[in-house]
């Protein structure tokens, strides 16, 4: 094979490699797995009244089905909290929502907080939101960003209103605890 032809062939091979498409460029939702893991940990580090310790352990998501709901469904459904099996449910509106141990309200549904607070009144549902100032609107736990880190703040009084007891281990990890 002539010198020139050889070089052209190898250069073509190298060029085709250097133009290879990169691994995966699609943006990944890197916040939702952390929030889902926190929600699962809330289930393990909070005490529900005895009448909530039977049957399924329901974690509900109000709002977008992508992100946190998908993570909960694929990674935590079927796992156990004590003797209770986790079931993950999704609701697109407040009217659809009935009963759950944990209700996570996605930011797109944050405006439903007042009707939700009324709906969960007298029930032992842990209301988790993701909007600044929502501990004042009835949420027991609110997801916040502290710098670049995903954190959560806790309102002990809002939890107590729903007969929920939060473990010290969880309180220590909160970025803020409101008595």
């Amino acid at each position: 094979m002539s010198k020139k032809l050889y070089i052209v062939i190898t250069a073509l091979i190298l060029c085709s490699w250097s133009m290879m498409p990169p691994e995966v460029t699609q943006m990944k939702d890197t916040r939702s797995p952390v929030k889902a893991l926190y929600l699962y940990n809330f289930a393990t580090l909070i005490d529900w009244p005895s009448d909530y310790r039977k049957g399924e352990f329901v974690i509900a998501v109000l709002g977008d089905k992508e992100g946190v709901y998908e993570n909960l469904k694929s990674k935590y459904e079927g796992k156990a909290i004590g003797s209770q099996e986790i079931v993950v449910r999704s609701f697109s509106s407040v009217t659809q929502f009935d009963k759950a141990h944990i209700l996570y309200v996605t930011p797109s549904e944050s405006s439903s907080i007042s009707s939700l607070s009324t709906k969960v009144k007298g029930k032992s549902t842990l209301l988790v939101t993701e909007k600044d100032g929502y501990l004042n609107k009835g949420a027991a736990i609110n997801f916040v960003l502290s710098g670049t880190s995903q954190k959560f703040e806790i309102s002990k009084s809002n939890a107590e209103k729903h007969k929920l007891v939060i473990a010290d281990r969880l309180l220590k990890l909160a970025s803020k605890v409101v008595e």
Binding site: V34, L37, Y38, Y40, K79
Partner: peptide, 16 residues
């Protein structure tokens, strides 16, 4: 991104 996406779902909360 892989560190988060492939995180063990049962990772202790303190390690997150």
């Amino acid at each position: 991104a892989d560190l988060i996406m492939n995180m063990d779902p049962l990772t202790p909360i303190e390690d997150v």
